[in-house]
Design a protein around this nucleic acid. Structure first.
Length: 103
DNA sequence: TAAATGACGCATG
DNA sequence: TCATGCGCCATTT
């Protein structure tokens, strides 16, 4: 992957407002790589190595916490996001709608 | 170079 | 939303 891709992902992640969550696919889409959702996860995995990024606001398409990052659940709760009993976020109300999504 | 892996997504049922 | 199966692509072994 290119460093450009990494910074691109981080930029988008920083755009996610508090109390909202975005999916890897959505970020990958905004980054221009709709198929590279997995790469987004790889970047977020060591995003803190590049700096402090709200990687906890990034969840999978179910609104579920990352496979190896359950702490994000508690973090989102502090942001105001409501988790259901199934540990899934109410996507219909908490999924971030970026302006670029309609482009 | 090929095979396996991974913070994933989508179509169906 | 969950379970299963397939696709996607870069990194690692």
């Amino acid at each position: 992957m290119t460093d450009e891709f990494i910074y691109l992902i981080l930029e988008i992640v920083l755009e996610i407002p508090k109390g909202k969550v975005a999916t890897y696919g959505q970020i990958a889409l905004l980054a221009g790589y709709p198929k590279n959702a997995r790469l987004v996860g790889k970047v977020l995995s060591h995003a803190e190595l590049f700096g402090h990024y709200p990687c906890h606001r990034v969840v999978n398409h179910m609104g579920k916490c990352a496979t190896a990052f359950p702490e994000q659940k508690a973090l989102l709760q502090q942001e105001g996001v409501i988790f259901k009993e199934n540990n899934c976020v109410d996507m219909k109300h908490f999924q971030w709608k970026s302006k670029a999504s309609g482009n």
